[in-house]
């Protein structure tokens, strides 16, 4: 049995599919392709891939609709590849269940890193007690965070925020999502809280808080947690 992850590309542009196929196969992934929304949905149903790369501009159906249909039952990571670059489009796709969003044109190196991160995130078992991200270690049972093996003192809010991030590695979490999960539904427009706590958390967990390696800014959209490995 192959332990290569398989990735389904749903995109109507032959050039993009070719480029993705070469990129992914040279990075040791198994690749299957779909040209239309209909074909994509059938392929996911017949043989659920480990990850889906989805274009939003499909000929037969809007990518947003495909995303919603997929999310009714498919739980694997979905990464959007689209030429649409407005914050509204990105937030909408993330709200509809996308894990990540890359605007075309993108660097293939960046795409591979995002795929790796998303696949890692998908394999975190809910009962894995201790998660390692380079020099950072998070024990979700004992609620202990260590950096270079030293225990970090985090406030309750900082810890809640960090645990949310580590449980969603590779996934872009929108401002509103984070505010709702950490502070509650009444706070979804209180972005100032999130800004302050992100800055505080970065000071504690990042090597250089100005050049963060774990909590990555997605301008106007939200934040994404990555491992440095």
């Amino acid at each position: 049995m192959s332990n290569k992850a398989d990735i389904l590309i749903i995109d109507d542009e032959a050039q993009i599919r070719k480029l993705l196929e070469i990129t992914l196969e040279s990075n040791d992934y198994l690749v299957s392709q779909a040209v239309t929304a209909k074909e994509g949905l059938i392929k996911v149903a017949n043989h659920p891939p480990d990850l889906v790369l989805l274009d939003l501009g499909l000929p037969d159906e809007s990518g947003h609709t495909v995303l919603q249909k997929l999310r009714e039952w498919y739980t694997g990571p979905i990464i959007i590849l689209s030429v649409l670059s407005s914050e509204e489009d990105i937030v909408k796709a993330l709200d509809n269940g996308a894990n990540d969003y890359l605007v075309k044109p993108f660097r293939t190196g960046e795409l591979v890193a995002r795929i790796r991160s998303a696949l890692r995130g998908a394999h975190i078992e809910s009962n894995t007690p201790v998660l390692n991200f380079g020099t950072l270690q998070v024990d979700l049972v004992a609620r202990i965070v260590k950096k270079n093996n030293e225990i970090l003192k985090l406030t309750a809010t900082e810890y809640t925020l960090l645990s949310l991030f580590v449980k969603n590695e590779g996934k872009v979490l929108t401002h509103q999502y984070l505010l709702r999960e950490v502070w509650g539904p009444g706070y979804i427009n209180q972005l100032q809280y999130l800004r302050v706590f992100i800055a505080q958390l970065r000071k504690k967990i990042e090597k250089d808080p100005n050049r963060p390696e774990h909590i990555i800014t997605e301008s106007g959209v939200g934040y994404r947690f990555t491992s440095t490995e």
Partner: peptide, 17 residues
Amino acid sequence: PKKDWCDINELIYHVIE
């Protein structure tokens, strides 16, 4: 313009990156 709270420090370093 869609104005919301920004961390100027974060924004500047993000651009530099």
